[in-house]
Write a protein that binds this DNA or RNA. Structure first.
Lengths: 228, 228
DNA sequence: ACGGAACCGTACCGTACGGTACTCTATGCA
DNA sequence: TGCATAGAGTACCGTACGGTACGGTTCCGT
C-alpha cells in the first residue's frame, strides 16, 4: 500500500475550483457550529450564497458533498512531512514530542471532531463511505508520518522494536489515551488535559522507556524486552 | 464524585417492567442491525409488538427512549466487581490482564459500538444528554473498576505511581490504542487484533514496565521514573 | 448588440419521521 | 354480567429534508 503513495496523493485529491472550495469551507463551518442537523443542502446553499441546483451539479449527491468535505479538510491539514531526518537522539526525541503534540492538537480541533462525529454517526449505514474515507485520509496519513519517524529512529539506533505496528499502537495509545473518544462524546478536556505539550512530553518519555535504547545517541542497549 | 457511588447505583438505575425491558431489547437489536436510521418509533413499535402510543407513555420522548436504552445496556453490562482483592503479584497481574481483555471485549461488542456511534453522532446537538450518559454509565464505570485495581496494586506494592489519573490513562492507551475509534469508524479489526487475550497480555506487560515494581511480591524498587 | 452558458433564488414534489388521536380488543374487577 | 383500564393497531397531522424544475440575472464570447 505504501508503494502507491504518490499516485494516491494525485488521484485522490481532486482540486476544487475556488468557488467550490468556498462552498466546502462554509459547509464545514456549518457542521462545526450546528452539527449534522445544520448540514442540510438548503442551509449549505444559503450559507454559501449558491443554489441547491449548483450544489448538485458540482458535487453530485449529498453524500458526495460530505465526502468532498472530508477530502478537502484532509488536504488542508496535510502536515508538513519535514523533509530532513532527525540528526541526533535529542533531535529525534523532540521530533516525537512534536508529533505527539501535533496529534493532540489535530484530534481536538473543532473540524476534526465534527467530521469524525459525522463519519462515526454514519458508519452503521452500509452504503456510507465516510468512515473509510476518514480512516484513509485522516488516521492512515497520521500513521504514515509516525511510521516514518519510528523507522528512522530504529535505523539510527534510538529505538528498538521488531513490530512497527505494535510500536505505533503503543505510541498512539500513550499519547491519546481515551481523550479522543471522550471529546467525541462531548466531554470538554479539563485543565490538565489541555496542556498538550506537557502531556506529549510525558507520553514520549514513557514511550522511550518501552522502546528506547539506553544510549541517547544510538547503539542498542539490549535492555528492551519487547520481543518474545 | 466517588463518594456518591451507592446513591448513583440506586437512583440512576430505573428498573423497567419486563415489558419495557423487552421493548428496550428489541430497540437495541434494531439499532445494532440497522443503525440509527432503523431506529424509528414506528420500527421499534413494530418490532416490539406494541403501539407507538405506549412507547410515548412508557418512555416519554424519543430521546428519553434512547437514554433508557443506554441505561438499560449499562445495567446489563455492569461488571462483577470481584469482591476479593488480588492476593499476590501474579494474581494481581492476572487481574489486570483480565481487565484489559474484558475492556477490549466490551468495546468491540456490537451493542457497545452501536450505542457509542449513536451518542457520538448526537454529541453535537446541544440538547442531547446521550454523550454525557454514555460517558457516565460506560466509561466512568470502567474507570472505577480500573482505579480500584490500580489503587490496590499501589497499596500492595505491585505498582508505583503518584497520579492515578495518568496511570489509568497509560493503561487504557496501551490496551486500546486507536482500536476503538477505528472500529467506531467501521474498520473491522484484522486477524492479529482479534486476539484480545494475547494483546491484553502484551499491553499489561508494557504497563508493568512503566508502573510496576521490580519485585513481583511488592516492595517498591525505586526504579520508577514516573514522578516529576 | 446578441446569444448562450452559468448560476442564484425560490418554488415545488415526494417521502419519511415524530408525535397524537381514535377504534377495537382483552383482561381484571365488582 | 357489566364496567374500566391498558394496550395494540392504524390512521392522521405537521414538519423537514433531499432532490428537481423554473424564472430571472449576470457575464462572456462573438
Amino acid at each position: 500500500m505504501s508503494d502507491a503513495l504518490v499516485q494516491d496523493r494525485v488521484s485522490d485529491a481532486p482540486d476544487y475550483t475556488p468557488r467550490q472550495s468556498a462552498v466546502l469551507e462554509e459547509a464545514l463551518r456549518l457542521l462545526v457550529e450546528g452539527g449534522d442537523r445544520a448540514l442540510t443542502t438548503a442551509a449549505i446553499a444559503r450559507a454559501a450564497n449558491c443554489s441547491k441546483e449548483s450544489l448538485y451539479k458540482w458535487f453530485g449527491d449529498r453524500d458526495d458533498l460530505l465526502a468532498a468535505m472530508v477530502s478537502w479538510q484532509a488536504a488542508k491539514v496535510r502536515v508538513r512531512t519535514s523533509s530532513d531526518m532527525p540528526a541526533d537522539g535529542a533531535d529525534f526525541r523532540q521530533r516525537l514530542e512534536e508529533f505527539a503534540s501535533d496529534l493532540l492538537t489535530v484530534l481536538s480541533g473543532d473540524v476534526s471532531l465534527a467530521l469524525n462525529r459525522l463519519a462515526i454517526g454514519q458508519a452503521s449505514r452500509d452504503d456510507s463511505r465516510l468512515g473509510a474515507l476518514v480512516l484513509k485520509r485522516g488516521r492512515d496519513a497520521i500513521r504514515q508520518r509516525a511510521s516514518a519517524l519510528l523507522r528512522s529512529g530504529l535505523d539510527r539506533g534510538h529505538l528498538e522494536f521488531t513490530d512497527i505496528e505494535r510500536a505505533y499502537r503503543a505510541l498512539y495509545g500513550l499519547v491519546v489515551g481515551d481523550l479522543h473518544v471522550r471529546m467525541l462524546l462531548g466531554d470538554e478536556p479539563t485543565g490538565a488535559d489541555r496542556d498538550f505539550r506537557r502531556h506529549a512530553q510525558r507520553a514520549i518519555a514513557q514511550f522511550f522507556r518501552l522502546y528506547g535504547t539506553a544510549d541517547p545517541d544510538g547503539k542498542p542497549s539490549g535492555k528492551n524486552h519487547n520481543q518474545h
